[in-house]
Design a protein around this nucleic acid. Structure first.
Lengths: 226, 226
DNA sequence: ACATCTCTGGAACGGGGTTCCAGTGTGGGG
DNA sequence: CCCCACACTGGAACCCCGTTCCAGAGATGT
């Protein structure tokens, strides 16, 4: 009996791939991409680095599994068949956007794994909606790719921007700084950017992101009617 | 006189920020992102790591300068005023695409520096053409951002894909492999992706990239006419 | 009881960015 | 003419990283 109990509790909770990935996500969320270290991870799990390698082949796989874990839930999240394809695409985009906002490290990670599972899920979902839009078969790949690439681009930018700021305060402060810098650029060389400085200060990332999606959707619709 | 000569030739060519960045670009192009090391760089310049730090503050600045060095020439490259705005945007996109194809490390680097100079140049150029398209002022920021984010997305993907392959052979081989993997996906869960496998195998990245640009341009035109 | 197998965790290795510092030659001031 | 301050060099060292190694603990099958 003592044996039985011990067996389940050789450690309070035995190490497992699941627990490791979970802890890794926690560290990534609080300490960022650079904060995830096998030593930090080992300390949080009250073990040594070597033990982790019994369950996980290396850091790449760990990051992949963490990304997978977060993205999987997001794509599956909204399967309401009642919406129009446009609405479904916008909804998926927003869920991804919010997820990247909450876990900025995903932004860089998504781009890193080309044919990997998380991106494939997104691609599949986008493709289905594109098909539902009535896009001719030959153009479906192009349309879905364009949407995916746009989303990945925004994801990367968000990840890059999230380096210094967590709070809402820091964010507006950051925007003010960049906006001011833009406004002071050379009037000849950067005429447009200077002019866009005020729009930068007042913009809402989410709204802007959706507007980009809508632009591509409008383009798909326009191309289809040719 | 001997002094004069010596002074200019204390080393055959004295160390300088310029020479360092140039060497870094060379290493990045041949050995990839992971191949650039202060020790390798020092060896190529026939010096020690410490000397490099006298001219450059750290690796981030070095990567930034390298990116700047490559991108600056590209944006300035095509200032033919005769073209339509659409053609100018497509031309800039293509120049960027080809540059990223030649220096894949740029793809990851561009996203990393948000308000930095290289990206600003691209943004400015895009913005001017958007303005020339007659897009209303309030929508110019959105349109230029959408184009930029799409380009950055493609850039990141290209950088990620370039990891294993240099030659043309490897590329088609790679596409065949991924295409085959897609074709073997679960028919229920990945219906669209399975179907897109053949379009993936036959596609041309450049053409596909341009098609995405055109989609966004069409969307901009459609939105403007509302 | 023993041998075996899964799983652990600490030590150690190679290599990265960065810092330190003793030295070098050069140009300017006594 | 000398000598000193100074820009610049480059090798050694520091600390942290991912990863590997291994001695061993606990459970299991015979």
């Amino acid at each position: 009996m003592a044996t039985r109990t011990r067996r389940a509790e050789r450690r309070e909770e035995p190490l497992s791939r699941e627990r490791i990935v979970e802890a890794a996500i926690g560290i990534l969320d609080t300490a960022g991409e650079g904060g995830l270290t096998f030593r930090v991870l080992a300390e949080r799990l009250a073990t040594g680095p070597g033990a982790i390698y019994w369950h996980v082949s290396g850091k790449d796989e760990l990051l992949g599994a963490a990304t997978e874990g977060v993205v999987a839930g997001i794509v599956l999240g909204g399967a309401c068949a009642s919406a129009t394809p446009q609405e479904a695409i916008r909804a998926l985009g927003l869920r991804l956007f919010d997820a990247i906002d909450a876990h900025p490290w995903i932004g860089n990670q998504l781009s890193r794994s080309p044919g990997q599972s998380p991106m494939l899920r997104v691609f599949e979902h986008l493709g289905r909606q594109v098909r539902a839009l009535g896009v001719p078969r030959a153009a479906q790949f192009t349309a879905a790719s364009a949407l995916l690439n746009y989303i990945l681009g925004v994801a990367g930018q968000n990840a890059a921007n999230a380096h210094g700021q967590e709070s809402e305060r820091n964010r507006t402060e950051f925007l003010d700084t960049v906006s001011a810098a833009w406004a002071n650029l050379d009037p000849d060389e950067y005429a447009f950017t200077r002019d866009a400085a005020e729009q930068l200060r007042d913009h809402d990332d989410r709204v802007e992101f959706l507007a980009g999606i809508d632009l591509i959707l409008a383009g798909i619709a326009a191309s289809a009617s040719d």
